[in-house]
Design a protein around this nucleic acid. Sequence first.
DNA 1: CTATGGCCCTGGTTGC
DNA 2: TGCAACCAGGGCCATA
Length: 288
Amino acid sequence: MPELPEVETTVRMVRAGLEGRTIRGVRVGWERSLGGMSSALFGRRVRGAQIVQVSRRAKYIVLSLERSGAPAGFIFVHLRMSGRLCIETPGEPLEPGLAAYVRVRLKLDRGDLAFVDVRKFGRFEFVRERDEITAALGPEPLGNGFTESGFRRALGARKRLLKPLLLDQTFLAGLGNIYVDEALHRSGLHPQRRSDRLPRAAVGRLYREIRATLSEAIEREGSSIDTFYRTPEGQPGQYQDRFQVYGRTGKPCLRCGRGIRRIVVGQRGTHFCSRCQPAPRPGMISAP
DNA sequence: CTATGGCCCTGGTTGC
DNA sequence: TGCAACCAGGGCCATA
């Protein structure tokens, strides 16, 4: 599920309930969610710490911890495919259907934070230094550090297919399968175009459409295409109603009417319009 | 460097 | 209806 817009929505909704809270205890239902640390050590690291800030970096939710005013590490949460954060209070108990999938629970001085994750791919991990996670990440697509000229240089420095490159979190951090397909369609670019063979104007379009797509999706609180993603308030997002290509295989392109096609690129289902996103010349799909 | 396939997991949907 | 196969908003790792 969650890509940048869903993670951003999650952060905005849990922030008020978490900032300022103190972690009184920990319950771990699936130890691997901790990313290799034992439950015992995780408990020791976070018990007694105060959550002073809730923020987002790429697809991570970052809880900054302090003990008596001094930095005390971070909890990095990655929702992967099916993860969700829920705040439970006596007045707002967890939805009954979710209880069986709580993998980590933080007992707070007011309420609980439940990390729910059906498929168990998600992570809820403690690190001492932010860099341990963020060092390998590419720029934030909506941040000031992501510029059109920098993007052009970076694309030109690689010889990869556009779609897998845009999914690569070390190249650009935050896009996932849905928003890459949507941004490529809006840019009129075929997912198998090579990154180093784009005209300048195409790079400009792609740059702007990536940012516009993500911004519009955040405004609509992300996309919900099945029962997994819900905002922490339990509501589905609204951006799925705006999809141009994702999940629309065989349906008419909303711009030109031709049927949307689905192919597999880099092992990921890929949706595009063969008229609005013309294929590169055959020799340009793979390296010569 | 780039690409590919397997793997981690569970549940919903599809097709016979 | 029953059941197997296939699919899924992600990412890591080993191997060509």
